[in-house]
Design a protein around this nucleic acid. Structure first.
Lengths: 197, 197
DNA sequence: CTCAACTTGGACTGATCGGTTCAAGATAGG
DNA sequence: CCTATCTTGAACCGATCAGTCCAAGTTGAG
């Protein structure tokens, strides 16, 4: 065949992801996406389908981009150092929020907040993403010496606090404040670990 | 003068508030608002001005509706029972989420998440609302025996966890899970109080 | 009853939306 | 060079958007 793809799909996807991430689904028009990706309206359609399909692709891209970092962070304490693992986990979010090349907030949290007005497919994907994060945390905490059911409970709590960083960063909270939010949850976990298991 | 207001402004405002709360600013059209309030398009305009003005009015209404409940809850432990006060504070949010007459989530959290695409006036108001909640918590915790600066830190943490309930409820978390999220933060605060001050 | 104030529904504007189509041009493998 | 593929820009569609306006109808105080 002659004439291969002339643009990098992943780069375009990253640009679209950032656009959705910053402005949300409703406030991102196809013209915005065209501008962000540098791609023509027609090219977007032929390559990614309609707006919903592209948004789903961006959610997947986001999951790969950051989900892997969370996974890696959690495995850093795999050998019985859950405190280090959870700290590293939070650090992924804190670093992302501190990164000036990327919007504040979190694409998953933002999508979850908009579930009542998004298509079922998109809403489901966001909810699944939250569930996956929680499952990863539970797995990481299962190796820790915690009372029965506490791995589950702390996984839920940490997932929630992690989402709260998205809201607080959009509410102009400082890096120091975000770290305070994390530190207090860390102290609760530390306490639970030291009081036997 | 003859011909007074024929409809209850507060009832209409409540209906508009719930509509914005459920669907967000971008996904709420004037027709949606007209349908929700039972008011004519023209009446909405003559009574509340444009969409931005109405949204601000709804934010204020929300602040009155729930801000007062938070205030009251916090004052329930004014005489040196901060744990009871904070528990009551969280309970306001948990009850609201459990209320079937009202959407999941939180209008303030939702507005905060959308700051990049909202008018500066609206974004500022949402950020102020978060700051106000934090200030109330700090005041309530100042009476508690906590180490220097901890009242501030816990106020920040509790504000964040409270916002996280909005995200998690939209992500279909169960009431039990929401309570778990709260309980772990409560245990951290309890620990800080018992280790002297 | 009178009349001023309020409410209504619908029509209208200009703009933007998502989505589709197509002809012209650019690209690179053969 | 030839040609299949990809990309582009623009035009176009029907729908919806926020916001405005007005004529007709309703209300209730005086």
């Amino acid at each position: 065949m002659a004439g291969k793809k002339q643009f990098d799909v992943d780069i375009a996807l990253d640009a679209a992801m950032v656009q959705f991430w910053r402005a949300g689904y409703a406030d991102t028009s196809l013209d915005d996406l065209s501008r962000a990706t540098g791609l023509n309206r027609s090219s977007i359609y032929s390559s990614f389908g309609d707006k919903d399909s592209l948004y789903l692709r961006c959610l997947d891209r986001y999951a790969i981009r950051y989900g892997d970092r969370y996974e890696q962070a959690l495995s850093s304490g795999a050998s019985g150092e859950p405190l280090r693992a959870i700290r590293a986990f939070f650090e992924v979010t804190l670093q992302r929020i501190a990164d000036p090349d990327v919007p504040d907030g979190c694409l998953v949290a933002q999508t979850a907040m908009a579930t009542p007005v998004l298509s079922p497919a998109i809403a489901t994907r966001a909810i699944e993403a939250v569930g996956l994060q929680r499952a990863r945390l539970r797995t990481a905490l299962n190796t820790a010496e915690l009372a029965e059911g506490d791995a589950e409970n702390y996984a839920t709590h940490i997932t929630a606090v992690n989402q709260s960083l998205a809201v607080m960063s959009r509410a102009r909270a400082s890096q120091k404040q975000l770290r305070t939010i994390v530190d207090i949850s860390m102290s609760a976990l530390s306490q639970a670990l030291h009081s036997r298991g």
